[in-house]
């Protein structure tokens, strides 16, 4: 008997559970905003203990990296080719401007090219000024079949 492919709805539900079970994502207060085929939108709040520059109160770059990495990983997992798992090969982050303190940061990631074993992703992070990105990222992720 042929195994039935999970429905789109099932896959999104599974992905949601998977992301919500990541301890570090939970510790940073990450929240899923939207999931779709090969793309994801996630956000996280500013917090005093995440500050990287005491003078300006700007959040640490590494926190933005974590949001980008998680969001890219989620988008790779949600590619319609249905990979079993994924891991980051490399990730480049460009910091375009300091994120405004006390504002929520939202990242959107999508697969712009996928081979049998690798997904290429792009992501952008915004604060509450939704027009001028805080950071952008490109990354390669493994796809395990």
């Amino acid at each position: 008997m042929a195994e039935q492919a999970p429905s789109e709805e099932d896959r999104l539900r599974i992905a949601r559970q998977f992301i919500e079970a990541i301890p570090y994502a939970a510790a940073l207060g990450m929240r899923i905003e939207a999931l779709g085929p090969g793309e994801a939108t996630m956000s996280m709040p500013w917090a005093e203990h995440l500050v990287g520059d005491p003078q300006s109160q700007v959040i640490h770059g590494g926190v933005v990296s974590a949001l980008m990495d998680t969001c890219c990983g989620a988008a790779a997992m949600l590619h319609p080719s249905q990979p079993r798992s994924t891991a980051t090969i490399d990730l480049r982050i460009d910091y375009m401007r300091p994120a405004t303190p006390r504002q929520r940061i939202t990242a959107h990631a999508y697969c712009y090219h996928v081979t049998r074993s690798v997904a290429f992703l792009r992501a952008e992070a915004l604060d509450e000024d939704g027009e001028h990105p805080v950071a952008s990222a490109t990354g390669a992720f493994t796809l395990d079949r």
């Binding site: 079970a21 990541i22 301890p23 570090y24 994502a25 939970a26 510790a27 940073l28 640490h60 770059g61 590494g62 926190v63 990296s65 974590a66 949001l67 980008m68 990495d69 998680t70 990983g73 980051t88 990730l91 982050i93």
Partner: peptide, 21 residues
């Protein structure tokens, strides 16, 4: 709290990124 993949388990890539930066 630094775990990113509870199944393996492995440290979160974002932790590694923050650590190196």
């Amino acid at each position: 709290k630094l775990i990113g993949n509870p199944l393996l388990p492995a440290i979160h890539g974002g932790v590694t990124a923050a650590f190196l930066e």
